[in-house]
Amino acid sequence: MKRRDVLRTLVFFGVGSLINPAHIWMSCSPKVDRDIMDEGQIVLLGEIAETILPRHKGLPGAKDARVAQFIDQHITDCYTGQERLDLIQCIITIDETAKARFKKSFVRLGAKQRFELLQAFDRAAKANKDKENIAYTNYSKLRSLIVFGFFTSEPGMKKCLRYAAIPGKYSGQIAYKKGDKIWEFN
């Protein structure tokens, strides 16, 4: 880890905070030795996913769509052992960061604190364009996987997008106004 990165990461947690997820990432490395999620990690992932894609305005969120359960099964089928370890390490890093910042595990945080925590990850991930910081690279991957799991689920597709299993025809031009939902297939 370069000093420049440490400083950059710190900024996002505000002055006075000494937490750097990248350090936590590295320090918790030895803890992750199983490439299969346990029950607690699935619950944790569910809460992370819900923070990213919350239930809102009566529309389902990540927990309604059982995104964590899907990811658990999907990574077992489709990921290499190393990719699974990285993903699990990523959610543990989020949890350890929560403990360092708020003295509580992520699942015990209130909505505002959860948001604040992942916001820091999100901003840092955005700044991490060169992919130098593995903790944030993996956070971006985790987020993409959550989005994939949600918008390909039945509630995600049918309620949060427009789902037309059998469109019946194609029109090259229909009017669009802000607020109209995307087609599920876009």
């Binding site: 923070t51 990213i52 894609l53 919350p54 809102h56 305005k57 969120g61 948001f115 992942l118 916001q119 999100d122 901003r123 991930a125 955005k126 987020r143 989005v147 918008f151 949060c160 997008l161 669009y176 802000k178 607020g179 109209d180 939902k181 995307i182 087609w183 876009n186």
Partner: peptide
């Protein structure tokens, strides 16, 4: 903007 929260989810629901 940010890639999380209800605004994010709503933005993704639109083209």
């Amino acid at each position: 903007g940010e890639q999380l929260g209800s605004d994010y989810k709503e933005a993704l629901s639109e083209p």
